[in-house]
Every structure is written in structure tokens, then in C-alpha cells.
Simulated assay, not measured.
Amino acid sequence: MADRKNEQKKSQNRDSQRQKAEAEQEEEMNQQLAQIARRKELNARFGYDVERERLAVIRAAQPITGRILEAGTGQGHLAINLARLGYRLVSFDLSAEQLEFARQNLEANKLAQLVELRQEDGEKLSFPDCSFEIVFSVNMIHHLKDPYRVIDELSRALVPGGKLIISDFNPEGLAMMAEIHRLEGGQHEASPVGIDEVEKYLKDNGFKIKKTRTRFQIILVASRDSKF
């Protein structure tokens, strides 16, 4: 009888801990949603439309065929826009928190079946060489301490003749993000390596570049294909 009571007590404790964890996760998600809503308002104030910018990246990358990798899932903006167009892809991020939010975002849009989310370190990817025909990186480079190591890894995962699409903020975009973070009470830290340095690095490593500009971003479509 005592053993049964102990087991019941343990079971109740486990249930209580699980419910507490679920409640904390829900509260964290609600806070993130509120933060995203505030960020969307600030973006609009500065004329920055995240979806429009992501669609510009997708247009610049056309034609898009074969296996697709996204580096830096974030909240899932690019993955959602690609999936809406019917593309299947693998998307990775180092942050488990960001991946969880992206997963819920994809599920809310009924697109989760098209996107495989992975937790990966961009400096040491688990993918074999030559795994993808298309590799995207959008607004990730300026967050990195050593972007070149990540670019080398993304290049390794790219098939010969594949396309590496790197898009990041131009000076106006970085200034906008710095001001938005200031208004939120924070600070936007950016790598000293900008998109211009990334372009030079790609060219020095045998890539040909097609460049597209939007108001806030520079989009580099890079390939070693001789016909590119």
C-alpha cells in the first residue's frame, strides 16, 4: 500500500512539473509574440517589410531547383515564404528557442511538412559535402563573429555549380536596425565584417556574383558554375 502511494505521489509530482514547464513555455511564447508584434510596428514605421524583403531574395535566387538549405532559421520568415511557394527545404539554427518558435510558426501556417528544422552550428555542419543545390543565408552574417568560417562550411555543403545566396543589411538597413533596437531598449550588435567584405571573400574563392539591391539589403547570388 505504501509503495502504491509513493508511486502515485511521484506520478503527481511528474504531472505537476510537466504542467509547470508547459505553462512556462506558453508564457515565453506569448512574450515572444508580443515582442514580434511590437517589432512589426517599428519595422512599419521605418518602411521595412520583412516579407517583401524575403520575396526579393527568392526572386533573385531563381531558378530554384534541387535540395535547399537555409542557414539561420530565425523565426522562420524565409522558410515560410519558400514553403508557401511549394519548396521543400532543410533549415538550421543554433538557437533551440528560435527553432521552437519557427516550428510553431510553420505549424500555424500549415507548412511544417515542407520544412525540416535542424539545430546546427554553422561553423561545423553535420551535412556531408555537396549536399545541397541551393543554400540561403538571410540576415545572419552580421550576427557572426567569424562569418568566413560559416561561409566556408556553407560552400562545402554546396554541390559544384550550386548557388549560395547571401543577403544582409546595407548601411541604411544596419542603421535602421540599430535605431529599432535602441527604441526597444537594447543594442544591435553587428559583426565588423559587412556584406561588401563577404562579396570580396566569395570572389577571392572562385565564386561569380550577381548582386541585387533593395532599400535595406544587398543580395548576393554566388556560384562557381562557369555558365553562371
Rank of each mutant, 00 (worst) to 15 (best):
I141W: 03
G185V: 12
E197H: 08
L154I: 07
I141H: 05
F169Y: 11
L174C: 13
R149Q: 09
E199Y: 01
E179H: 10
D204V: 12
N170C: 12
D146W: 00
K145D: 06
G161F: 06
K208F: 13
D196P: 00
G186D: 10
I151C: 02
L174I: 15
E133T: 12
E172S: 14
P192R: 04
F207H: 14
E197L: 08
G173I: 03
S155Q: 05
I165Y: 00
I151F: 08
F207K: 12
F169W: 14
P160C: 10
V159S: 11
R182P: 05
G186T: 11
V150H: 06
I195K: 05
G206T: 09
L158P: 03
R156V: 11
K200Y: 05
V135L: 04
E179A: 10
F136W: 07
D196N: 13
K208L: 14
E189H: 06
V159T: 12
D146R: 03
K145T: 14
E199C: 01
I195E: 07
R156C: 10
E172L: 15
E189F: 03
Q187L: 02
F132L: 07
E197M: 09
H181I: 01
E184M: 08
H181A: 09
L154R: 02
I166N: 01
L174F: 11
E197W: 00
K200G: 00
V198H: 00
E184L: 05
R156A: 11
M177D: 00
F132V: 11
D168H: 02
F169Q: 04
R182W: 10
E172D: 15
S137P: 08
V150Q: 02
I151H: 08
Y201A: 02
F132T: 04
S155G: 04
L183F: 12
V135I: 14
L154Q: 11
M140F: 05
I166V: 15
M177S: 10
R182D: 11
G162I: 10
M140T: 09
S155K: 01
P171S: 09
K203C: 11
G194W: 05
P128M: 09
I165S: 01
M176T: 03
I195A: 10
N205F: 12
E179K: 12
H142D: 14
F136T: 05
S155Y: 05
G206S: 09
G161L: 07
L158V: 12
G185K: 00
D168S: 06
I141M: 14
L164Y: 04
P128N: 06
V150W: 03
E197A: 15
P147T: 12
F207Q: 11
D204Y: 05
A190F: 08
I165R: 00
M176K: 13
D204K: 14
